[in-house]
Design a protein around this nucleic acid. Structure first.
Lengths: 112, 112
DNA sequence: TTTACATACATAATTTTCTTATGTATGTAA
DNA sequence: TTACATACATAAGAAAATTATGTATGTAAA
């Protein structure tokens, strides 16, 4: 998923859910472009990681899909389900806690 | 490695290297206890993750070992090699960048 | 005109990293 | 003798990623 960095492993579901919380409705390719944009090209989301992750989140009931044909190409749009809305809150809290613990462990705690 | 959290995947090597940079010389069990202490028990480092990671870092030339018998028990001490000293700097920079990118992606950027 | 690139989806094979389980061994406390 | 702590190690399996491949459409360059 990352350009040269192992650290993003495990963060993909949280990133997807949060992007959908912000943007309501996105399709896969759009998510890859959004991630590239936000990280100034530092993080490149590979299809082999993205699509299985989207399918898994859908299977777990956190996402709902609708397919459209735009400019003669298929697009599969994803939105958060009601459970997905709850899940993103929980995942974001976990991410906050994770960052705090990691900063502690690596002596990266910003000066107070 | 974590209690209930997937997010720490990929951070273990960085955590180990940084602890050794701070403490000069540690043995495996000591590392597990240190991590438990620093994170107030939130992060529990399993042996099945720790020992293979130490062996890998040693095989890559980042760690040097010395075995001692203390109170009739074997202890294998680890220290950073010269390459390990360089590696920890690089890994810490990666971790900083990772946290910054993740905060961007998750809208967690602390207020300036 | 065919090569490359972008858009848009998907999956299979493999690799990496972790969890879980197990094993050896010593020492102490219940 | 059971449980727990200290201290190492590895094997089997699961989970998540990478790499590679495939389909299909459209545009731009060589």
């Amino acid at each position: 998923m990352a350009t040269n960095n192992e650290l993003f492993k495990g963060t993909l579901q949280t990133i997807i859910l949060n992007l959908l919380a912000d943007n309501k409705r996105m399709y896969g390719y759009e998510i890859t472009q959004k991630v590239k944009l936000i990280t100034a090209g530092e993080l490149v989301l590979k299809e082999g990681a993205l699509y299985p992750a989207l399918h898994k989140l859908e299977a777990e009931g956190f996402l709902e899909t609708s397919t459209e044909i735009v400019e003669n190409r298929v697009r599969k749009y994803y939105e958060l389900s009601q459970n997905g809305e709850k899940e993103v809150i929980s995942k974001l809290q976990e991410a906050k806690d994770f960052i705090a613990q990691l900063q502690l462990l690596l002596n990266l705690k910003p000066a107070l």
